[in-house]
Design a protein around this nucleic acid. Sequence first.
RNA 1: GCGCCUGUAGCUCAGUUGGAUAGAGCACUUGCCUCCGGAGCAAGGGGCCGUGGGUUCAAAUCCCGCCGGGCGCGCCA
Length: 573
Amino acid sequence: MSRSVFKVLDIVKKIKSVLVNNFEGINEKDILISSPPDIKLGDIAIPLFSLSKKLNFPLPDLAEKCIPCVKIEPFVEKVERVGGYLNLYLNREIVAREIIQQVLLQNVQFGSSFSGKGKKALIEHTSINPNASPHVGRARNAMIGDSLSRLFRFEGYDTEVHYYVNDMGRQIGLLVLISGEIENLDFNGILEAYVRANQRAENDPEFAKYGYDLLAKMEQGDEEVRKKFFKVTEMCLKGQLQVLKRLGVEYDFFDRESDYIESEELNKVLEVLKAKGALFIDEEQRLTVDLSRLGYTQEEGRYFVLRRANGSSMYGYRDLAYTIYKGHRGADEDIIILGEDHKLYLQQISLILSSAGYKPPVPVFYSYILLKEGKMSTRQGNVVLLSDFLDTASVLALKRVQEQCKELSKEEQNLIAEQVAVSAIRFAVLRVTPTKNVIFDIESALSFEGDTGPYLQYSCARIKSILRKYGKEVHDDIPEPFPVQQNEEWMLVRKISEFPFTVLNSIEQCNPSIIAGFALDLAHIFTSFYHTCPVLHVDEEEIKIARLQLCKATLQTMQNALYLLGISVPERM
RNA sequence: GCGCCUGUAGCUCAGUUGGAUAGAGCACUUGCCUCCGGAGCAAGGGGCCGUGGGUUCAAAUCCCGCCGGGCGCGCCA
């Protein structure tokens, strides 16, 4: 069921205002605009059921009255009533011209409504514990966050991306402890070291205690200990960032948790909580917030501990301080990407912040990536490391590139293979709505066939090939009228016209999968067009040019969509 | 136990916020490279949209109950 709506032109807006002006007692919200289930039934559909009811006007009469109103010149060619629907047929040649023109004029900006102009967005994402190489499950956070960052930038927001470096805590303490025992510990050895440290802590209370002691010294600002923590976490962070960079994920700011051990402003917030009777020292000497005093109604999750009995801070304390800091950066949109396991936690800190007059960040939650065999577990060894996946995908892609692009240099071939590998993983993860679990199937993610990132790149490569073979620059002046002969051409135009709407929809819902779905639709329609409509092999020069322009507009739209997903488009593959 | 999320073809997922005949890909069957790139296209089979009620002109979509899956629930981060 396609519900394409022509957003590029203001036809929808015009229809609404015309109807509102012609009928008393209705407003724009009463008028629904959708589109017919089949291209044969027209391009825009207006269901009249509720209008007829609201106006107390028999449906056939209402339809009769509406038909001349919505026949908006010169775009609407024909209006028909089918059952309770008013179906509008657009003038393909005029509408297509307008749309293709817009795409070619706006090129890399086509799709943006600039809704974020003059506004600022702050996005925090990824925050993988610096203790291991990231697996694809963890990377879902980074991919969603990165894609949203691209969306916000695309819409004109002044966007800053933050990475919160969790360089504290008992786990890191243990890691620092054991790193002192291993010579030349590097990023590759870190996971093993981490696992070993945890095992030892379980069996050796002495060792565990050292971990805590080290953490306490770190908190108290012991310079030497701080240096040790920094050294280990920095090495780990660098390694992780290298892998993430392969995916095209980058950050503007790295904020270290250890810089938020003490916060005067947060202490003032705590005074507010105290005044509300929400802050107390519990029976085990922990500094605790009783959220029920702030409006929290559940018993589960009612208490939120800020400091241990020995006075050391908990993650929640530091994160509250950090969140306050972020709030002062003046962002209109303050967004944080979190795994679904943080839902209650975020609710808790949001309650604390808002009860002291702060605006909490807007969370985007995502569910875990599962393997067919079940959950990913580092301990059980059934994880798919991001770097491993990229390596195998890249090798597989290289084989095909070597066959198909023999004339290219080795470096170019490698580059393309890497681009294909990245698109395979990014698309496989991003195409699924964040709130749903992703069942990750390595086999199909590596197949590059069907609804995959490489398929999208492939369809672009085909367009580029056509444009290359044409040999000349395809100019941007669109003929009037623009010839549209086949349904496939028209369907392409319709799909392209949806893109700005899709972008807005995606950013409103903070859901990149909407873009992914759009890219797939567009690619399918294009390949269908490709097989039915010859571009270079047509005699009439006007048709050839028009189709070349349609190809160019399709490519531009596809590249813009893929850019938002962090997928780059090779010239050939 | 309580709370949040989720259930659509054998499998992996869409379904533009309540609209017309529920759509793709994988897998299976059948065609299509002397023709702009077969990482492709065209066609076919395959559905009680978890289940039982309700709301209305209209429900995969909204509300309630039940069942299955994911996540969480006081010194982890």
